[in-house]
Amino acid sequence: MVELAEMTPTVTAAPPALKAESKNVSFFYGAFQALKKVNVNIADKKVTALIGPSGCGKTTFLRCFNRMHDLYPGNRYQGEILLHPEGVNIIGPEVDPIEVRMRINMVFQKANPFPKSIYENVAYGLRIRETNSRSVLDGKVEQALRHAALWDEVKDRLQNLAFALSGGQQQRLCIARALATDPEIVLFDEPTSALDPIATARIEELIGELKKSVTILIVTHNMQQAARVSDYTGFMYLGELVEFDVTGKIFTNPSNKLTEDYVTGRFG
């Protein structure tokens, strides 16, 4: 369905490097096949969005990238997701999911801070990596919180419980937590679906900033959001990738009829 060879982006002069590529990725929840041979190329330091109606498999696909499916029994991957520059297949059974998660972090649909202080939430990933020096942690926590545009709001109350923050702040805290360990890719699973429009706008703005330093893969059911934040967009339907292209093209001149119907709101 998708001509991978033709995927030369026209937005920039020099084409971006390839960060990850999925090759014929299928996924099974027990006997149910949720993904059918999905092929997507993820460009380095760009935002790639996945859209599609609910149940189309976009979140399932996203969660393959840091092996979240390994947490539950009965799940099975097929195909390859190659992480570049090494070209290691991160869904291969010989690859340690923990190593994958150390390089690819995730922000969830609903903000899920730990019942700990703001500081400890951000420091968690570093502590997991046995970074315990106070000065290193202090620096990293501040950097991550600044990165997540939360520093000015919380710098005076780092020891307060994370639950004291508003919903939008909690989600930015979760973003800071994911950024603190310098991941190569950050996965966003509908990060604004539980937020009000103002908090949503801040997160979208933040994603635009983040792509300067990190590769982003975002799942959203909000087409406008995909159009606003992403460089590339893939449209998924019934576990298949229907179309993948530069975002502008998907929303203005999709080559597939199904994509056109979806982005123009005729179904979904």
């Binding site: 923990i98 150390m102 046995e130 310098d182």
Partner: peptide, 16 residues
């Protein structure tokens, strides 16, 4: 930052 080999050693330790 921690290098890949360090990370592998850390993960091995944690796995143990």
């Amino acid at each position: 930052m921690t290098s890949t080999t360090d990370i592998k050693a850390i993960i091995r330790r944690h796995r143990t």
